[in-house]
Design a protein around this nucleic acid. Structure first.
Lengths: 121, 121
DNA sequence: GCCTCCTATATGCTCAGGTCATATAAAGGA
DNA sequence: TCCTTTATATGACCTGAGCATATAGGAGGC
């Protein structure tokens, strides 16, 4: 019987990761390992990143080219396509709507929190 | 060949549904079908709602009581527990952090969007 | 030469949040 | 009686995401 903490919303928010990847790429072409650094290696799983990149390439949002020059193993360098830029703009619009929803939530929460103690006479 | 819209972030944001359910319950005890009305029947799947309510009851966030009086089939009326209120406050705090992240995203987006056309000499 | 570490990409397994379709049952009205 | 409305519930399935692990090239130690 360990209620430790109730419920708990722990994570780095679900469903928005692709948006962050697109934004990171919008700041300049890069390969996967470099994107990990840009987004914070602690906050993003490498496996998920690489899979996402492949999926986004298949969808035409990004394109890749092998870079064999330099030291270490070959790198797959990704860059945004026009379609990717368009997707990023759509994400931005979506996140603005999401922010409005959050404002609405927090406003409603403030109302119920104030009246929590005096619900019925 | 119908690229219609690229990528597309369509949905009512994932992972936050439990928070909305808790908030709706904070505005007063209700049974499932009534919660559907409060949250918008179009935006929430009944099956998912009922499963969530059962899970939250098991977690101690809500409690339920059968209401056989009145017309129609029996209703399971849910209400928030103290633990549920605590969870709701944690959700609010989390969503404030999420809002800050969104601000950061949109700010960075505004920067890259402005300089999109002049990337290299 | 060989071993080991760092960089870099990739795959398999699994879980949880969510959607869609469908089942069941009580009341009320035609 | 049968159909519709209200209300709760279950089964199948999809997908974003996390965790573990595999693979391969280069660099440095010895």
């Amino acid at each position: 019987m360990h209620h430790a903490s109730p419920c708990c919303p722990p994570w780095r928010t679900r469903g928005l990761t692709q948006a962050w990847i697109l934004l990171a790429l919008a700041q300049g072409s890069a390969h996967g390992y470099e994107l990990l650094d840009r987004l914070g290696p602690e906050t993003l799983d490498p496996g998920f990143l690489y899979r996402s990149l492949r999926a986004m390439e298949e969808a035409g949002l990004v394109q890749s080219a092998w870079q064999t020059a330099g030291s270490g193993p070959a790198r797959r360098v990704y860059s945004l396509t026009d379609l990717g830029w368009e997707a990023l703009r759509m994400w931005a619009a979506h996140l603005r709507r999401l922010r409005a929803q959050l404002d609405q939530f927090l406003e409603q929460f403030a109302q119920v929190e104030g009246g929590e103690k005096d619900v019925l006479p």
